[in-house]
Amino acid sequence: MTAIAQKPAMVAVPRRSRASRFLRWMRSDIRAVLSIGFLLLLVLVSFAAPVIAPYPPNDQNVSLLLAPPDAQHWLGTDDLSRDVLSRLIYGAPNSLYASFLAVFVAVLLGVPAGLVIGFVGGWFDEVASRFIDALLSFPPIVLAIAVTGALGIGLTNAMLAVGFTFAPFLARLVRAQTLVVKSALYVDASRGFGASTPHIIWRHILPNAIQPVIVQVTLALAVALLAEAALSFLSLGVQPPSASWGGMLARAYNYIEIAPEQMYAPGMAILLTALAFNALGESMRVALDPTMKRR
């Protein structure tokens, strides 16, 4: 509703510096600012973990098993008498690494595949698209579990597997975008000037097809984070004694009757981070897509 009123204003002020545009955007989208702030904080915490964590992650204090929160241990201690807050802080880099690795693998596999399938077209597109449909028919976590089992258990392999299950989503999206851009006039013009196929894909199709991919990639970070937590919960992901939020939940679950408060902190960490990735993705969708502004 408000966008209709804003439109003439945007036409009237065509040129603004990049910085002032950014500031305007920040003021208009508090949700995005909060998410970016939270994620930056998380990155900072990840790098500064050894400095800011009150205890080393595997430090044990045997007199305190499953202790409730107090002045020394703000979030209490776990079943091996390790400081929960410290493990939460040391879990952040593992969880972020896992999310980014999975999405990186998905982009590396999915984007080129989608570009080639869309660009070549014809029967190759028919066959490849059916293959993508087949991959998308697998329940993602189940496929990720199977692939992890085959590659060998561990955080990196688990996230390679998760990335592998995301790749067909991106491939399908990029293929559809490529099909649209491929028939644009400027592509024909470029070909008319004698541009090579790699040049056309790299300079014309990729930049114009990439916008929805950026949005999906941000949203995929949240899904990857949840997948990491799930796989670590099933002990297919991060291996002890390394800390991860999903792994902490798995341990907490074993002592749910004695120390139920153990499960709240890692769960909240996962929830907030996933929320931040999602909110950022949604904000980018709105910011990048002019037709979305009406809603």
Binding site: L226, A229, A230, L249, Y253, I256, G267, I270, L271
Partner: peptide, 22 residues
């Protein structure tokens, strides 16, 4: 809905189990 998408379902499961079973 945004909350529901970001919620780890197994965490919710643990909370439900604690509150309504245990």
């Amino acid at each position: 809905a945004s909350m529901g998408v970001a919620l780890p379902s197994f965490w919710l499961a643990m909370i439900l189990a604690l509150q309504f079973s245990l």
